[in-house]
Design a protein around this nucleic acid. Structure first.
Length: 821
RNA sequence: GCCCGGAUGGCGGAAUCGGCAGACGCGGAGGCCUCAAAAGCCUUUACUCGAAAGGGUGUGUGGGUUCAAGUCCCACUCCGGGCACCA
């Protein structure tokens, strides 16, 4: 393409100028209204790909737009620089993860700068920076003091081939290791946890106040999985001293209990098992625990989607409602980790219980009357109770209340709430992460590292091989230390923290990046928090966003963040993915389209406009053969603005109201459209609106000649409207048109003149029986009566009426009249 | 299996409150400029019947509400994403 200007040198020139000017560096005491715009900090996987480009294009548009609206915009950048890929690459190359990480950060930074995205680089944060680690560890210790961090045994994915722990995403759907192909086992290890479940209710309730996409809020609600129910005791039939605690959300169906189930992990299982049943039970337990979690839950059959495996324990328990003895089973469909690890089974109203009852030939009693024609499966809906003694005739809600009262009185029951959410397991048996700052002393036990000894940094001289243990566990100089309490020999914790802990507070460090002695000064953070606009991928809808919300609430509660809001991100926008040949574009899939070639060929501005224009920002983008053409079209659009705005050859003529007024109206309508579109995340239509304006102005200028003041106003507005979208070319045009004046990016955002938004006349549609038959030019303030009269008087309309008398006329002046005959 | 999205020309998409379906762009067709090409500019482009004037049809499918439905309601099909036995 022949361009009217040298894209590469123009873009390089402005990028250099923005860097030197520091326009987008903001101080915490800036007097302007504050705005915190944030893109999720990236894992440095190398040079940027189109997903990054899309993310930072949106983010930079927000930064530049809000700056033009007069705000002090905090726009920081940093790196989620700990993580597994760098560690694996280092193992493969026999190198150090820092080397990979730092070179990749440099590449990504370079791409981001060539995109023309502007940041306050003084505030850059990297999670592997010892200065950052120091405070990640300090927060951990604060959590520990506050009782929010604790140690417990937990099962991990253990690969016998690699002799190491795998992350869930490294375990394939068939339960094997993605690297070695070995069957992954479950193994119990002592692990660190954070008590996120203490915040379950608040995390759930506060979602209501957030301007987030509904589907993200729904995903978080489901993840937390609050359910109200009753806990009560089932008494063992032949030994009233033994009771089994169960949890149910359907106490009202209690008359339908025909058996009960304990989880294979249940602590009382051994005591509950009779000698003759012990072999069968042990067999079932061995099977359930030897399988990986994936395998245990993935086997299916066609009917219910699930195969239930169980064994009779030899015991019976008493149904508290009927006093009958029902058999007690162990089955792997009951989880040890949820509720009490044991259930009452009601196959009449629960699908899973029904599947088990059918497999083991257990009786089914219906306790809720089902509507006519309901399939003969388990019925979970509302209805009148039957076969239920004192509950008969009650609906589900009333029966629940009555049954709960009954259980509270007769079976040591209590109303309770359970959550699907579990505590956050933060231990990782990894090298390339933030070490957990505790030591183990033979005399004193677990001892926190004193804060003045932070940060605990992993040594550089480690051997990155794959012998199965974290390099930290075998590195004597790191491992062996002295106890801070008694001075005796001690071992350092060899595990590192989940990298989600790093990303749970980086946005706070940005507000006060040089803070010493504490993660951030709450007074400084309070100047910016909460983040006004957070932008990132939908893939972080649950974990990252939930953990970050938990962190801030906890930091406020334990005194590290007094005065801060309890929610970090007011508005969230989740951008769509870029897909190539139907699958997500990502480094791990190796299907990246590098932006560099576009920077060289068409320029960053054209690529930015493409990402804004191609479709709704929240939708996925398919990168296809046509994409190249669309990007060129975007470059063409920018070239046309450039040519028109710098064209000195246009014919000049005197002002003519009838020619110029429509152009002025178009300009101000466009200001209105673009402004509302930018505010409602409709970037594709905002670009389209500017394209339309360009077409209008361009046609007018060429057909009618130019009235200089109208043209100047139109062009200056247009350049300001595209400034957040295509910052380089707009800055260049502005400089040509206004030499010596402040940059377009320092100009105020245009404001629409309300007088020019009011239409004097417009086109009214006349329908006959709902079909459009005529269009009339009418005054904007026409009444319904006058509109109907005008419609009836129209010659074309009369032809369609063919003399018939309308039975009804619907008038919606000034838009439409519908004549019904 | 459950939950959440989505389906509109050849393609990406627009239609903010139930009121002109297809804005804007890509691609296609024709033309201007040129020795020629590239670039640029102009016209045209949902489908269909028709020589034209003009008519008919049309927003995944089938029903419904309404003067009027891409938009609201019911049932379904297909596609994408998330979660996988949460009692």
């Amino acid at each position: 393409m022949a361009r009217p200007f040298d894209v590469r040198s123009v873009e390089a020139k402005w990028q250099e100028r923005w860097r030197l000017d520091g326009t987008y560096e903001v101080d915490n005491d800036d007097p302007r209204e504050r705005y915190y715009a944030l893109c999720m900090y990236p894992y440095p996987s190398g040079a940027a790909h189109q997903g990054h480009v899309r993310n930072y294009t949106f983010g930079d548009l927000v930064v530049r737009y809000q700056t033009m609206r007069g705000k002090a915009v905090l726009s920081p950048f940093g790196f989620d620089s700990f993580g597994l890929p760098a560690e694996n690459a280092a193992i493969k190359a026999g190198s150090h993860p820092r080397i990979f990480t730092e070179s990749r950060m440099a590449e990504l930074k370079q791409s981001v700068q060539r995109l023309g995205a502007v940041y306050d680089w003084r505030r850059e944060v990297m999670s592997h920076d010892p200065q950052y680690m120091k405070y990640s560890q300090l927060i951990f210790l604060a959590f520990l003091r506050a009782g929010l961090a604790y140690r417990a045994e937990a099962p991990v994915n253990w690969c016998p081939g690699c002799a190491t722990v795998l992350a869930n995403e490294q375990v394939l759907a068939d339960g094997t290791c993605e690297r070695s192909g070995d069957v992954v086992e479950r193994k119990n290890l002592e692990q660190w946890f954070f008590r996120i479940t203490d915040y379950a209710d608040e995390l759930l309730n506060d979602l209501d106040s957030l301007e987030w996409p509904e589907r993200v809020k729904t995903m978080q609600r489901n993840w937390i999985g609050r359910s109200e129910g009753v806990e009560f005791d089932l008494v063992v039939a032949d030994d009233p001293t033994m009771v089994l605690r169960v949890f149910t959300t359907r106490p009202d169906t209690g008359f339908g209990i025909t058996y009960a189930v304990v989880a294979p992990e249940h602590p009382m299982l051994d005591a509950l098992t009779t000698d003759e049943q012990r072999p069968a039970v042990e067999d079932l337990v061995a099977r359930a625990t030897s399988l990986s979690e994936v395998e245990r839950t993935s086997s299916s059959d066609s009917g219910t989607g699930l195969t239930k495996r169980g064994a009779f324990t030899g015991r019976y328990v008493l149904n508290p409602f009927t006093g009958e003895s029902v058999p007690l089973f162990v089955a792997d469909y009951v989880l040890g980790t949820y509720g009490t690890g044991a259930i009452m089974a009601v196959p009449g109203e629960d699908e899973r219980d029904l599947a088990f009852a059918r497999a083991y030939d257990l009786p089914v009693v219906h306790t809720v009357e089902r509507p006519e024609g309901t399939a003969d499966g388990a019925y979970a809906g509302d209805g009148s109770h039957i076969n239920s003694g004192f509950l008969d005739g009650l609906n589900v809600a009333d029966a629940k209340a009555a049954a709960t009262a009954f259980l509270v009185e007769r079976a040591r029951g209590r109303a309770t709430v359970n959550y699907r959410l579990r505590d956050w397991l933060v231990s990782r048996q990894r090298f390339w992460g933030c070490p957990i700052p505790v030591v183990y002393c033979d005399a004193c036990g677990m001892v926190p590292v004193p804060e003045d000894q932070l940060p605990i940094v992993a040594p550089d001289d480690v051997v990155m091989d794959r012998n199965g243990q974290s390099p930290l566990a075998t590195h004597a100089a790191f491992r062996d230390t002295t106890c801070p309490v008694c001075g005796g020999p001690a071992r350092r914790e060899a595990d590192t923290m989940d990298t989600f802990t790093d990303s749970s507070w980086y946005f706070l460090r940005y507000t006060d990046p040089f803070s010493e002695g504490r993660p951030f000064d709450p007074a400084q953070a309070a100047k910016w928090m909460p983040v006004d606009q957070y932008i990132g991928g939908i893939e972080h809808a649950i974990l990252h966003l939930l953990y970050a919300r938990f962190y801030l609430k906890a930091l406020v509660d334990i005194g590290l963040a007094p005065g801060l809001p309890r929610e970090p991100f007011t508005r969230l926008f989740t951008q769509g993915m870029i897909r190539l040949d139907g699958s997500k574009m990502s480094k791990s899939k190796g299907n990246l389209i590098a932006p560099e070639q576009y920077f060289d060929r068409v320029g960053a501005d054209a690529l930015r406009v493409f990402h804004l224009f191609v479709g709704p920002p929240g939708d996925d983008v398919d990168w296809t053969a046509q994409t190249e053409d669309v990007i060129e079209g975007c470059a063409r659009f920018l070239d046309r603005i450039y040519r028109l705005a710098t064209d000195a050859t246009l014919q000049v003529r005197p002002r003519d109201e009838s020619l110029d007024r429509p152009v002025e109206r178009a300009v101000h309508r466009t200001i209105k459209r673009v402004t509302t579109d930018l505010d409602r995340w409709s970037y594709n239509t905002a670009v389209a609106a500017v394209m339309e304006l360009l077409n209008t102005v361009s046609k007018w200028a060429h057909d009618d000649g130019v009235e200089p003041s109208v043209l100047a106003e139109a062009l200056d507005v247009m350049v300001r409207l595209v400034a957040p979208m295509a910052p380089h070319v707009s800055a260049e045009i502005w400089e040509i048109r206004h030499p010596g004046e402040p940059s377009v990016h320092a100009q105020p955002w245009p404001v629409a003149d309300p007088d020019l938004l009011v239409e004097e006349t417009l086109t009214m549609v006349v329908q006959v029986n709902g079909k459009v038959r005529a269009r009339l030019e009418v005054r904007a303030d026409i009444t319904d009566e006058a509109a109907s009269a005008a419609a009836m008087a129209d010659e074309t309309v009369r032809q369609y009426l063919a003399g018939a008398t309308p039975s009804r006329i619907v008038a919606r002046a000034p838009r439409l009249v519908n004549i019904i005959v």
